[in-house]
Amino acid sequence: MKKLITALVLLLSCAQVYSKTVKSIVVAQDGSGNFKTVQEALNTVPKHNTERIEIFIKKGVYKEKLKLDTTQHMVSLIGESLNETILTYDDFSGKKAADGSTHTTKTTASFFIFADDFLATNITFENTAGEVGQAVAVMVYGNRAVFVNCRFLGNQDTLYTQGQQSNQYYKNCYIEGTTDFIFGFSVAVFDNCHIHSKKNSYITAASTPEGNSYGYVFINCKLTAAEGINEVYLGRPWRPFAKTVFINTEMGSHILPEGWHNWNKPDAEKTSLYAEYNSKGMGGNTEKRVLWSHQLSKKDKRNYKIKTVLADTIGWTARK
């Protein structure tokens, strides 16, 4: 774990995010740890925390609706096993909540991460509601969130990058879903990630705020699909200034030749930035891409270094 954190520090130039761990907590369903549930462990994080707290989660399926509050910063969640440490719930939009209200997309998440400087590794995040509409596995609002070797499982709206002033980094992660399963406002880099489509639909639905230099950036990723899936778009603009870029990404034959969709918003073609560089594989042929998308030059590509994207205005280097 120490080697992992050191590597991330060097990569992102954000040593202040990873200060010395001062508290370690173990969660185990069999009672061998400090707590049996993840939320009990999260509840112990002090408000306005400035020193890193490490929570080690032993193998198990933890069916809990989790929340890390806006004041509970500097938390690391470390799973014992990627495929066997599972944080899951099953809310969906339209479902009745315990208080009598009806869930919307924003309230369906299995895990809400509102705090800054969050780190997770070797954990599966899941929403098991099925194909019933919007059902978020993880909603990330806080800034400087890092996920390494994690899985995000769901259907529509699996991963909600919700914070408008949030920069996020996903390394060696697996993300699956059906429609718009990576969506939201945040700046996010997906580095060497596996993106898996389970339905003929759309992978991304960026809602990049006007004035942001970056939105979603996929680098050295791999796009695959379930058997029989053959009509998938790389993305569509949830809001007019959406930005999504794929660099050195292997694309399966399920990716449509046109690549991108305007969500029936012709005006969004003028303000959105949808671009690629060196797309590969059967879906990587860009000759028939929609005319309003872009192919980056080598010079353009230099602007998409990981450290550059994540330092954009509100990123890691903005924190003193």
Rank of each mutant, 00 (worst) to 15 (best):
Lys2Arg: 11
Lys2Cys: 01
Lys2Phe: 03
Lys3Met: 10
Lys3Ala: 11
Ala7Met: 11
Leu8Glu: 10
Leu11Asn: 09
Leu12Arg: 08
Ala15Val: 13
Gln16Glu: 15
Gln16Lys: 15
Tyr18Thr: 09
Lys20Leu: 12
Val22His: 07
Val22Gly: 01
Lys23Glu: 11
Val27Lys: 01
Asp30Ser: 11
Gly31Ser: 07
Ser32Cys: 06
Phe35Gly: 06
Lys36Val: 12
Thr37Gln: 09
Glu40Val: 07
Asn43Cys: 04
Lys47Tyr: 01
Thr50Leu: 06
Thr50Phe: 01
Arg52His: 01
Ile53Cys: 03
Glu54Phe: 02
Phe56Arg: 12
Phe56Val: 15
Lys58Gln: 13
Lys59Glu: 12
Glu64Ile: 07
Leu66Met: 14
Leu66Asn: 05
Leu66Pro: 03
Lys67His: 13
His73Tyr: 06
His73Gln: 10
Ser76Phe: 13
Thr88Leu: 01
Lys96Tyr: 06
Gly100Asp: 12
Thr102Asp: 05
His103Gln: 12
His103Asp: 05
Thr104Phe: 12
Thr104Met: 07
Ser110Glu: 03
Phe111Asn: 06
Ile113Arg: 14
Asp116Cys: 13
Phe118Trp: 07
Ala120Asn: 04
Thr121Tyr: 00
Ile123Val: 15
Thr124His: 08
Asn127Asp: 08
Thr128Gly: 02
Ala137Ser: 15
Tyr141Asn: 15
Asn143Ser: 13
Asn143Gly: 04
Arg144Asn: 13
Phe147Ala: 11
Phe147Cys: 09
Phe147Met: 08
Val148Glu: 00
Cys150Met: 08
Arg151Thr: 08
Phe152Pro: 03
Leu153Tyr: 09
Leu159Arg: 00
Tyr160Trp: 13
Gln164Tyr: 14
Gln165Val: 14
Gln168Ile: 03
Tyr170Gly: 04
Asn172Gly: 02
Tyr174Lys: 07
Ile175Leu: 09
Gly177Gln: 01
Thr178Pro: 00
Thr179Trp: 08
Asp180Ser: 13
Phe181Glu: 02
His194Ile: 07
His194Phe: 09
Ile195Glu: 00
His196Leu: 02
Lys198Gly: 04
Asn200Met: 05
Ile203Val: 12
Thr204Phe: 14
Ala206Lys: 03
Ser207Lys: 15
Pro209Glu: 05
Ser213Tyr: 09
Gly215Arg: 00
Tyr216Gly: 00
Ile219Gln: 10
Leu223His: 09
Thr224His: 08
Glu231Asn: 15
Val232Gly: 02
Val232Arg: 00
Leu234Trp: 06
Gly235Val: 11
Arg239Met: 03
Phe241Arg: 08
Ala242Lys: 01
Lys243Asp: 00
Thr244Trp: 00
Asn248Val: 06
Asn248Trp: 02
Ser253Asp: 05
Ile255His: 03
Pro257Ser: 01
Gly259Met: 10
Gly259Glu: 00
Pro266Tyr: 10
Asp267Asn: 14
Leu273Val: 15
Asn278Leu: 05
Ser279Lys: 09
Asn285Phe: 03
Thr286Val: 15
Glu287Gln: 11
Trp292Cys: 05
Gln295Met: 05
Ser297Gly: 07
Asp300Thr: 15
Tyr304Pro: 01
Tyr304Asn: 09
Lys305Asn: 08
Lys305Asp: 12
Gly315Cys: 07
Gly315Asp: 08
Trp316Leu: 14
Thr317Trp: 15
Ala318Arg: 08
Arg319Gln: 11
Arg319His: 12
